[in-house]
Write a protein that binds this DNA or RNA. Structure first.
Length: 243
DNA sequence: CCTATAGATCGGTGTGAGCA
DNA sequence: TGCTCACACCGATCTATAGG
């Protein structure tokens, strides 16, 4: 038991009364928010398997939130994952505060039923943290989706800008335009090199800013040169007029 | 003793980064 | 593009614990 686990246990005890969620909709939100929640895709396979043992599609405190599959059954529904790996990922899910262990005296998972055949007490895993954190998980998922979209747009803009810069440099060199093109090419390469190791949104944004700056620099330089050439042309016309 | 589980360890494997 | 290396992850195995 860690302090984090204690915190999620306390959180699970504070579920808003009447709150329910469709387990598969919530699961999809967890998949979207996966990086923020600190769980791996294999851990989500285990969570998926765990949720199949919850009898209803709607998670609610009234129906109980404990699932009690044996590791063998869990392994079957987790696409044949071996017991050791299963245990590891269950521990990951507990650490991430998505499920809670509700251990029996002998650490076995089972449900004790009353005379009517209803589950009186169950030992296994509680999915209560999912319900307690539903709003937080949905917000994280929405943020993750928005971030991915922003990243896609930023990458797209950077690709266009990068292509522009490459073409402008090539054109400037071909025309023999004045300017330190070696330095600009170096800057261009440095920006591209910065994107080699798994760039995040901030890296893409920074690269886009830098690349836009380089493009502006090139355009300014080429424009200044064009103006100067025009001026020279005008001057020679004036000269001819004088003659 | 059997069953069920958790946890630790160790060797094998897959994957991504870095480089030529 | 292909290679090497480091790292993370996986599966097998063993030990310990506890109830029936």
């Amino acid at each position: 038991m860690t302090l984090g686990m204690l915190a999620s246990q306390q959180l699970a005890e504070e579920i808003e009364p009447g709150i329910t969620r469709n387990k598969w909709t919530l699961f999809r939100a967890i998949c979207d928010a996966r990086p923020a929640l600190g769980v791996t895709d294999r851990a989500l396979t285990v969570l998926d398997a765990l949720l199949t043992f919850y009898p209803d599609n709607e998670l609610s405190q009234e129906r109980g939130l404990i699932v009690f599959p044996s590791n063998a059954q869990l392994s079957i529904r987790a696409r044949g994952m071996t017991a050791a790996t299963l245990r590891r990922h269950l521990a990951v899910l507990v650490d991430a505060g998505l499920i809670l262990r509700k251990d029996s005296a002998n650490a076995k998972r089972y449900a004790r039923r009353d005379r009517a055949g209803d589950v009186a007490e169950a030992f296994g895993f509680s999915v209560a943290p999912l319900l307690a954190r539903a709003t937080e998980i949905e917000a994280l998922a929405a943020q993750a989706v928005a971030d991915r979209e922003l990243m896609r747009i930023t990458r797209e803009r950077l690709t266009i800008c990068r292509r522009d810069v490459a073409k402008l440099i090539a054109a400037a060199l071909e025309e023999g335009a004045d300017g330190d093109w070696e330095k600009i090419t170096c800057m261009f390469r440095e920006i591209v090199a910065g994107l080699r190791v798994r760039p995040g949104l901030s890296t893409w944004r920074f690269a886009l800013d830098e690349m836009s700056f380089v493009r502006e620099e090139i355009v300014n330089q080429l424009e200044t040169q064009t103006k100067t050439q025009k001026m020279h042309a005008n001057e020679s016309q004036i000269e001819r007029h004088i003659q």
